[in-house]
């Protein structure tokens, strides 16, 4: 749905751009292709890693890892699984809600979702390419720590 909106926006601006200035539009498309081609090797590598990882860490295995363990150990486990895996939200939320029904706590789920979205171990090489080693590591570590704050807030609100 949103992807369609992105297509409409991109196409609309492209047509507008073309009407205003053909040459600039070609330049924009060239630039788009160059940027894409520039990170394609990393993209492809990431996709294969995600594939292997999700094949090993299936929803069942993830459930086993963070499903029933509670307390801080469960949260730590959830944060580690969340940091290394890269699951699209449309898979992650149903999984999280299933985990909740199977006895996982709100705090573990919150830390899992938060690290899943904000911390990306797999994508760190790509992040380093754009932000440098220090900034990338800092952002990820801070996001990791912050995920626990989110979990505590969720724990307080949804007790």
């Amino acid at each position: 749905m949103f992807t369609i909106l992105m297509y409409i926006a991109a196409f609309g601006f492209l047509v507008l751009s073309f009407i205003k200035d053909k040459k600039k539009t070609y330049m924009a498309l060239k630039k788009a292709w160059k940027s894409f081609e520039n990170i394609l090797p990393q993209f492809l590598a990431i996709l294969v890693i995600i594939g292997i990882m999700l094949a090993v860490l299936s929803p069942e295995v993830i459930s086993g890892l963070i499903g029933e363990k509670s307390g801080w150990l469960g949260m730590l486990m959830a944060s580690l699984v969340g940091s290394v895996t890269l699951i699209p939200g449309f898979v992650a939320f149903p999984l999280a809600s299933a985990l909740l029904k199977n006895g996982a706590g709100f705090m573990q789920i919150a830390v899992f979702i938060s690290t899943l979205m904000m911390v990306g171990i797999v994508t760190i090489p790509l992040e380093i390419k754009y932000f440098g080693r220090k900034a990338a590591l800092l952002r990820n570590s801070l996001a990791f720590a912050f995920s626990f704050i989110v979990a505590i807030a969720i724990g307080v609100v949804l007790r």
Partner: peptide, 29 residues
């Protein structure tokens, strides 16, 4: 399974990414 997941993610990526990069190019120009 991993090959299947990689393939479906690749297809998904290829469907999501073109407008992002076109907008990026337009933004740049």
């Amino acid at each position: 399974k991993s090959a299947e997941i990689t393939w479906s993610n690749t297809v998904e990526m290829l469907s999501v990414i073109p407008p992002i990069f076109i907008l990026l190019g337009l933004l740049d120009v």
